[in-house]
């Protein structure tokens, strides 16, 4: 179980919104640019990594129950995306790292896939 603040440090990321949720805890990680994939499984307690910095990524996270989003490869969302995330209580992070390296670092720190696989 790792905290959002630890994830931000591990991924050298900026927190765009959701600083107040820094103690939120995570067990799972999912990296995907396919929204229907994210919607197909239980996501409570997960951090969602994606390269799509869109409104739909935020709505997908909200509906699937993901607790935070990390935009990889320095994808910066528009202000309306940040505003929606704030409204939905979903922290947004941006990392310069690739999807592969981001997932690798979180795996090293103990996170599993959403089905618990390692």
């Amino acid at each position: 179980m790792i905290k959002l603040s630890t994830i931000a440090t591990i991924l050298d990321s900026d927190v765009l919104t959701g600083e107040e949720h820094k103690d939120r805890e995570f067990l799972y990680c999912r990296g995907s640019d396919l929204m229907s994939d994210v919607l197909s499984a239980f996501a409570q307690g997960s951090v969602f990594l994606t390269g799509l910095a869109t409104l739909q990524a935020v709505r997908t996270a909200s509906i699937s129950g993901a607790g935070a989003i990390v935009f990889v490869r320095n994808k910066k969302p528009n202000p309306d995306v940040v505003a929606l995330a704030k409204e939905e209580g979903i922290p947004l992070l941006v990392t310069p790292l690739s999807m592969f390296v981001s997932c690798g670092r979180l795996y090293q720190h103990g996170l599993t896939g959403v089905n618990g696989n390692r």
Binding site: S32, L34, M35, S36, L39, T50, L52, T54, Q56, A57
Partner: peptide
Amino acid sequence: MGFGAGMG
């Protein structure tokens, strides 16, 4: 946009 994969 991450949709249209025939999973909906």
